[in-house]
C-alpha cells in the first residue's frame, strides 16, 4: 500500500467566512478586551478563550456536514486507541502514542478527521489524567498536527513511506506540539510572560519534547504500516469517507 492517492482540491468555501470572522474580529476583540477592560493581566483567561475560538470552525464544519454513523465511530475508535495507548504508557512521562495515531488518522481519513481524532483524544485523555487550563491547548495541538498531516498528504508533500511519516512525526511533535505547549505553559504558569520566561520554558521543556518526539517516531516506525493497512482495508471493505 505504497501508492499515493490522487490529489483532491479541498473545498474551503464554507469554513472560510467563519474562520475569517474569528481571526479578524473576535480574537483581536478578545485581546483588546483583555488589554483595556481586564487591565492586561489575565493571560490565562484570554489565551484559553483564543484557543477555544481556534477550534470552533472545525467543530462547525464537522457538524454542518452531518457525518454518517460509520465515520463518527471510526473517529471515536481511533481517539479511544490513542487514549488507551496513552494510559498504557502512563508511567513514562511524555512517552505517548497520541501524535502517531493522530498522524495516521490524518493521512488515512483526511485533515478534518485528523483534527477531530486529535482534539477528542486530548479532551478525553484528560478525563483520566486530570482536566485543567491546559486541556484546550493540548486538544488544539493534537488536532492541528492531524490537520497538517492530512493536508500535507493531500498536497502530496507527505508520503506513506515509513521514513516520510517518521520525519514528519518527529518534527511536528518538536515544533508544533512543543512550540505551542511551551508557550502555553508560560501563559498558564508564569505570572507575567516575559522574553526570559518564554526562553526558560523552551529550554527546560526541550528534553521533554525530545522524548515526546522520539516516542512519536518510534510508534510511527512500528505502527504506521500495519495501522494504515488496517484502516485502508476497512475503508475499502465498507466504502467509507470519500
Amino acid at each position: 500500500m505504497q501508492q499515493q492517492e490522487p490529489l483532491i482540491r479541498r473545498r474551503l468555501s464554507r469554513r472560510t467566512p467563519v474562520a475569517a470572522a474569528l481571526v479578524l474580529i473576535v480574537i483581536p476583540a478578545t485581546i483588546l478586551f483583555g488589554l483595556f477592560v481586564l487591565d492586561d493581566r489575565k493571560y490565562m483567561f484570554v489565551s484559553v478563550l483564543i484557543v477555544l475560538y481556534a477550534m470552533i470552525p472545525f467543530a462547525m464544519i464537522f457538524e454542518r456536514r452531518k457525518p454518517q454513523g460509520r465515520e463518527i465511530i471510526v473517529i471515536a475508535v481511533l481517539a479511544a486507541i490513542a487514549v488507551a495507548g496513552r494510559s498504557a504508557f502512563f508511567m513514562l512521562p511524555e512517552f505517548k502514542p497520541v501524535v502517531a495515531i493522530v498522524i495516521i488518522a490524518g493521512v488515512c481519513f483526511g485533515g478534518e478527521a485528523g483534527f477531530m481524532v486529535g482534539a477528542t483524544a486530548g479532551f478525553v485523555s484528560n478525563f483520566f489524567f486530570g482536566q485543567g487550563p491546559w486541556t484546550p491547548w493540548q486538544m488544539f495541538c493534537f488536532g492541528l498536527i492531524g490537520f497538517i498531516a492530512g493536508n500535507l498528504y493531500r498536497a502530496g508533500w507527505l508520503r506513506r513511506s515509513r521514513w516520510s511519516l517518521c520525519i514528519f512525526g518527529g518534527l511536528s511533535t518538536l515544533i508544533v506540539y512543543g512550540g505551542i505547549m511551551n508557550l502555553a505553559s508560560v501563559m498558564m504558569f508564569a505570572a507575567k510572560p516575559s522574553r526570559e520566561a518564554i526562553l526558560a520554558s523552551y529550554v527546560s521543556g526541550f528534553w521533554f519534547d525530545l522524548v515526546h518526539a522520539a516516542a512519536t517516531v518510534l510508534f510511527l516506525f512500528f505502527l504506521a504500516r500495519p495501522m494504515l493497512e488496517k484502516l485502508d482495508r476497512i475503508k475499502l471493505k465498507y466504502g467509507m469517507m470519500e
Binding site: 464537522f62 463518527i72 465511530i73 473517529i75 471515536a76 479511544a80 488507551a84 477528542t120 478525553v124
Partner: peptide, 24 residues
Amino acid sequence: RIMPALSLIFAMVLRFVPRYMHQL
C-alpha cells in the same frame, strides 16, 4: 442539540477506553 456528532464521539470514546483496556 448544538453539536450532536461531537458529543456522540465524546461519549463513545469515554466508553471505548475502559473497554479496550479490558480487551487488551
